[in-house]
Design a protein around this nucleic acid. Structure first.
Length: 478
RNA sequence: GCCCCCAUCGUCUAGCGGUCUAGGACGCCGCCCUUUCAAGGCGGUAGCGGGGAUUCGAAUUCCCCUGGGGGCACCA
């Protein structure tokens, strides 16, 4: 067990957990569980200004919702600044880092000038080789002092990525970078390197957008005297419809949005796992245990994956169908209570779940579909688009009359009693042509829960009232 | 501009030199079922970016091109 792997998920708490972060967390977790290693949570909040405690809590809540439990942490980098300062002092003393007196504005201005001139941007080494006198002079001017890491002048940095194989880059193309801000706070590179060393991280699994930074972190580790190197695995990016890295402008990307819309954690987990990875066989629906059993970094694909909401929808439906009725009820109840309050009748609710489970896409949509059952009768409204269709339907009034007559007189013991197909048959109208009229009248929209059960759950009185209301409205042409 | 990564149906992917007239899934289309439909069943549409090279043989190996993406912050 000496070499049980240790991995970490290390988000920056500058927002809620989004799709890309969740996928990174998932792959780390799957790897740790499959290898029976350790999964740690580390919060990279070195950017104090942009980090917020509520985001830290939110990220933990979302991970918990997904069922991604961590064995260590959360380790907060903001509580470990002394470690980073010690490391910075060491690097400075050994000449791996130097004091830089350029202001942020100056550096930015020179970068922009370089870009405009068609030259490669990046720190130009302005303060790289100052002597003690020059440094003292700049310091007495009251200039801000940051610390920069001195990258090698020549040679190349090479590491073997578990997914991509050997990745190499010339040091000459990597400029010196800041490791301690002028306000004294450490930066990502430093904190990341120090913590990975101290936490004895063996495998770093993260997004491909960090591929280039790996060279810098590796150089830092070496400068800090670490002889061990973690294995790196850079996951392909998740992209939007324009093939660019997924972000807010692509729509729903925060996991909380999916949770609130009624996506099941099982489905989200399952879908995310299949984004850039898959088991050896053809299975698409896999539960947590199956994912853990099958997970293998070697099977992670190399190219970016498009986040397909449609496939997620399909998968969510699959997972909803797999729930037993008690489980389904437990998951939907809070939302239904919030929506319907006291009007929520438990028996009717359960009945609605039974008939709705078969075709539900999200829990949220399912609750919305049963709105007509719990709405205050005065507040019952018909969807305008559906009503338009009713108005265009031939003999709609006649159909309503006939159904009213049927509902008035038929037995009312079971939902089967409410089979109104014979009514259509008598009228010589195909149910498929005009059934939507009754759906709209009773449920308020053309597409909804199965009709006969719905009418039965609604009760004879309310069903009749709505049918008659629709009849009257049709007549008055309102 | 420079550096890096990537490249099979619209999308997610299987494929790791012959068994590929390229398989599965989502979507889409059609048909069936049916209580309209957003469920179910059956079927269909659709792809190896281009050019060289290696080889008896290339989706699979190598090179070039093209295309896409990522990075180049006192963000992470």
């Amino acid at each position: 067990m000496a070499d049980a792997p240790r991995v970490r998920f290390s988000p920056a708490p500058t927002g809620s957990l989004h799709v890309g972060g969740a996928r990174t967390a998932l792959f780390n977790w799957l790897f740790a569980r499959h290898e029976e290693g350790t999964f740690a949570l580390r919060i990279e909040d070195t950017d104090v200004a942009r980090s917020r405690p509520e985001w830290i809590a939110g990220i933990q809540d979302t991970l918990t919702w997904l069922g991604l439990d961590w064995d260590e942490g959360p380790v907060l980098q903001s509580a470990r600044f002394d470690r980073y300062h010690a490391a910075a002092d060491q690097l400075l003393a050994q000449g791996h880092a130097y004091e830089c007196y350029c202001t942020e504005e100056e550096v930015r201005a020179r970068n922009e000038a370089a870009r405009a001139a068609g030259r490669t941007p990046g720190y130009d080494g302005h303060c790289r080789d100052l002597d003690a006198g020059e440094r003292a002079a700049l310091a007495t001017e009251g200039r801000p002092r940051s610390l920069r890491f001195r990258t090698p002048d020549d040679g190349a940095s090479t590491f073997t990525d578990l997914i991509r194989g050997e990745v190499s880059v010339e040091w000459a193309t990597i400029p010196d970078f800041v490791i301690v801000r002028s306000d004294g706070t450490p930066l990502f590179f430093l904190a990341n390197a120090v913590d990975d060393i101290e936490m004895a991280i063996t495998h770093v699994i993260r997004g491909e957008d960090l591929l280039d930074t790996t060279h810098r972190v590796l150089a830092l580790r070496e400068a800090l005297g670490s002889t061990a190197r973690p294995a790196y695995a850079h996951l392909p990016l998740i992209v939007g419809a324009d093939r660019a890295k997924l972000s807010k402008r692509h729509g729903a990307v925060a996991l909380e949005e999916f949770r609130d819309a009624g996506y099941l954690p099982e489905a989200v987990l399952n879908y995310l796992a299949l984004l850039g990875w898959g088991p050896e066989d053809d299975r698409e629906i896999l539960d947590r245990a199956e994912l853990v059993a099958e997970f293998d970094l070697a099977r992670v694909v190399h190219s970016p994956a498009f986040f397909d909401h449609q496939k997620l929808d399909w998968m969510n439906g699959e997972w909803i169908r797999r729930l037993d009725i008690d489980d389904l009820e437990r998951r939907v109840l809070p939302d239904a209570r919030a929506r319907f309050g006291d009007r929520l009748d438990p028996d009717v609710f359960r009945g609605a779940l039974r008939i709705g489970q078969d075709r539900a896409v999200t829990l949220g949509a399912l609750v919305e579909q049963m709105d007509f059952l719990f709405v205050d009768e005065q507040a019952f409204r018909v969807d305008p688009g559906s009503w338009e269709r009713v108005e265009k339907t031939e003999r709609a009034g006649e159909i309503l009359d006939a159904v009213v007559e049927h509902v008035e007189s038929c037995p009312w013991e079971r939902s089967e009693d409410l089979d109104i197909r014979p009514v259509f048959e008598k009228l010589g109208i195909k149910p498929r042509k005009a059934m939507h009229v009754i759906y709209t009248a009773v449920e308020g929209r053309a597409a909804g829960l199965p009709l006969f059960d719905s009418m039965y759950l609604l009760g004879r009185e309310r069903t009749l009232r709505r049918l008659r209301a629709a009849r009257d409205r049709l007549e008055s042409g309102a």
